[in-house]
Design a protein around this nucleic acid. Structure first.
Length: 219
DNA sequence: CCCTGATTCGC
DNA sequence: GCGAATCAGG
């Protein structure tokens, strides 16, 4: 594989979006994690918070046992590491379900029970969902933008809507189908047609584009 | 062990 | 320029 303009562009975007080198490599395909890192550096991409970098030039009495190359200690003024702002989407997602909490008479006491371990159970109409679960690390920071307004985000997935991904993780407009699911499946009828074929895929991920012909017969 | 990014250096 | 090998921290 070679670094075509497109691939370099993808690398740039994903790197800047905070994807790990492994993820980028996997996504691009045909390259190793090392290749991605190497390329990123050659491109002059800003290194993101590395697990192994908090270097202070001031005190360096440490022996630093260089086995191979006694590298001349270069204290290049590294630009401030980009803090990679995790945009927590304070999404006021309208959980419109039919379990609409009926307004409880104000004077009626809240019924709670205490479960094993001492935690307090909430009563049915009492769910307070203000706590947005911290998105798993590695997720691309949410970008609250108008373009995303009607896109189904990861956080909005549930059992009733199609989870078919559109676009690629890390790209700004990545989202999910969001249509009503084919009952019993995670996708809508249309995408079930894509997901379930005569035989499920092997270990591969993306056969379609880069195969002029020669690959397994694709309809 | 796993993961991460950084660096080196032969090609 | 490329990337495997290696390093080193979490």
């Amino acid at each position: 594989m070679s670094w075509t303009d497109e691939r370099i562009d993808s690398l740039r975007k994903m790197w800047e979006a905070g994807q790990t080198a492994s993820q980028i490599a996997e996504e691009l395909g045909g390259v190793s994690r090392n290749a991605v890192i190497g390329k990123a550096h050659r491109l002059g991409l800003q290194s993101r918070p590395s697990p192994v970098k908090p270097n202070e030039p001031g005190a360096a009495p440490a022996p630093a046992p260089a086995k191979k190359a006694p590298a001349p200690v270069e204290t290049a003024p590294r630009p401030a590491p980009t803090p990679a702002p995790m945009a927590v989407s304070a999404a006021p997602i309208p959980v419109s379900t039919d379990i609409s909490a009926p307004a409880r008479p104000a004077n009626e006491p809240i019924l709670r029970s205490v479960g094993p371990g001492g935690f307090v159970r909430q009563s049915p109409g009492e769910q307070q969902p203000p706590i947005t679960p911290a998105p798993p690390r590695r997720l691309v920071p949410a970008k609250p933008s108008p373009e995303m307004a009607d896109k189904t985000s990861l956080l909005e997935l549930n059992d009733k809507i199609c989870k078919w991904p559109l676009g690629h993780p890390g790209e700004p407009d990545f989202h999910f189908c969001g249509d009503k699911v084919n009952p019993g499946f995670p996708y809508c009828v249309e995408h079930c047609g894509h997901a379930y074929q005569a035989q499920l895929p092997r270990r591969d991920r993306r056969p379609p584009p880069p195969l002029p012909f020669g690959g397994p017969r694709v309809r």
